[in-house]
Amino acid sequence: MESINIKSPQNIVYAKPRLMNDTNMHYCPGCGHSVVHKLVAEILDEMGVEEKTIGICPVGCAVFAYRYVDIDWIEAAHGRAPACASALKRLWPDHLIFTYQGDGDLACIGTAETIQTLNRGDSITIIFINNAIYGMTGGQMAPTTLMGMKTSTCPYGRQADLHGFPLKISDIAATLEGTCYVTRQAVNTVGNIRRARKAIRQAFENSMQGRGSSLVEIVSTCSAGWKMTPDQSNQWLADNMLPYYPLGDLKNTVDNK
């Protein structure tokens, strides 16, 4: 069979972002992280800010984000990324400073740093992946685990008297004077990916313009932790996560018309 090479610049309609390298990702099939990584890389390239960007990785599945996106990164201790971000923004006021954190990192061990940083109004962006579980350590209960949801540390399902309630940290963040933009997005459908992309871009613009803190929550899946196929995970997210964590802007003080 004759093959035709169609790879020529005029034919390219979609490509891997320039700031993403060829390292094989460690993420499980169906995981939301890889999609969000790609969005971040694309937006940074688009904004042309790579020489004034510092990313801060969490402890959790995104701990190795620095392997995939070619910018300068700092790997923070568990939960402390926002404190790092506050310091960096004050020391480098013209830089784009963002953290990339999971639910355990941001809404549990790092709650103090998250709330205090957002409330200081430091113009940084927090990208918050909420998959309602501790993925990296093997599927334990997270602060955002839904009621009745099973994990290895609530194997009979989360119940209030034993485990308390799932934390809507973005709703708290929206009440803080220091935040200018708090939004909840998802990457389970193409439409949602587009909206999430727009939200991250908005947050990064806010950070560069010095408008205050931005928090972009992305409701995501963890097919390995949820013990489902990627497809089932997306469906489960739509059926169970989104009713408790509804999508849309929780706060937007920026006139972006």
């Binding site: 801060i56 700092i74 923070a76 201790a77 402390r80 404190a83 790092c84 971000a85 506050s86 310091a87 960096l88 103090a112 740093e113 205090q116």
Partner: peptide, 9 residues
């Protein structure tokens, strides 16, 4: 805890 992370970063 935040202080030391701030100087780390």
């Amino acid at each position: 805890v935040a202080s030391i992370n701030m100087i780390y970063a």
